[in-house]
Design a protein around this nucleic acid. Structure first.
Lengths: 188, 188
DNA sequence: AGGTCCTTTCATAAGTATCTGAAAGAACTA
DNA sequence: TAGTTCTTTCAGATACTTATGAAAGGACCT
């Protein structure tokens, strides 16, 4: 069957979403499956996905599981059908929230632990260091401190935005913009 | 020479930073070089980097160029030395700003273009679609519209935060938190 | 020009990540 | 229990990314 305009533009989007996912450390197939489910909002079973995206059963199965683990899609069942179906019923904002939380947990938390650990190690051995290294050591600790403070600051900002929910983002931005540009309210 | 405590914790951080970079779509070496320059703040030439990170000349050269392209490090020269040196003199906030802008330009802009293009294609062919597809088509367009509005909203928020500069982030967060939780100021 | 020192390039090698398909597993049915 | 249908797993194949090192290129000096 020849693709109609609908299928054609949908597939264009799915491909691009897949490519983008790839540059963000998400496998192409995982991103494509997600795009397919997200765009249609319909339940798809493994065979549907294999057919639409031309991927193997194993590949589909693995990536569906990953998407479920991330919380981006969920399993569901259709009356009178033993097969498992998958749906994505999050809106763009909820997706963002989910992805942000997951990535933070998986990737930001570990780096925070590493930095803390480095600083502890350094503090413990500081005294034993030859005097010429003390200054260097202090500067290094300073960098780590700045970095961790920065991460915490961004986390706090992000939490505030996330917990405020998607509907409010435009208003938050408006308020922020006013505060940020006024300068007065912020100076000291 | 045996590593001292300083070198040891520094190397721990560099390795972790490299791993994290990898999951974020940045090559391990590129992230490690960046960590090395960032932590020390000192100028390093290609040979220094080859030695510290145990990588080949070609690899060092390629990744240094990339980092310069991203704007994360800059080339410099030392008096009486013909070699080229590289330094990172951005603080954590400036790094974040630089990375955010680059990634947006490289990865978000294209997806915006794709969505716009999909919607145009769809609008153009809508009339020619069989009636049963019209409704499906409309729902699809709705999804794309939501998505692009979301992207623009996040971009606007990010721009506000970025242009306000790093020193203000804590105050911005404080203001936001008050606004977001009060509910009153935001309800329509 | 010829020599030295340094940087960049690029074909090939090495290393990773991803995908496939067949086999094993699980859940249900009769 | 044996059969059917669907799902998961995983060893091996494939495709992609990143690294190497030798050769070419460029800049400066004498």
């Amino acid at each position: 069957m020849p693709e109609d305009a609908l299928a054609r533009t949908r597939n264009l989007f799915i491909r691009r979403w897949g490519e983008m996912g790839a540059t963000w450390g998400i496998s192409r197939t995982m991103a494509e499956i997600h795009a397919l489910l997200f765009l249609t909002g319909d339940p798809y079973c493994t065979d549907d996905i294999m057919e639409h995206l031309q991927v193997s059963r194993g590949n589909a199965s693995m990536n569906l599981r990953q998407l479920v683990n991330w919380g981006l899609i969920r399993r569901t069942h259709l009356r009178g059908d033993r097969k498992e179906y998958f749906v994505s019923d999050l809106d763009a904002w909820q997706m963002f929230e989910t992805i942000t939380r997951e990535r933070r947990r998986r990737e930001v938390e570990p780096i925070i632990e590493t930095i803390d650990r480095c600083r502890q190690d350094l503090a413990a051995e500081m005294a034993a260091l030859p005097p010429d290294k003390q200054e260097e050591s202090r500067r290094y600790d300073e960098k780590l401190k700045d970095m961790i403070e920065f991460i915490h600051a961004v986390n706090a900002l992000l939490d505030t935005v996330l917990t405020s929910g998607g509907g409010k983002i435009r208003k938050l931005t408006a308020v922020l913009m006013k505060v940020a540009t006024s300068g007065k309210a912020l100076s000291h």
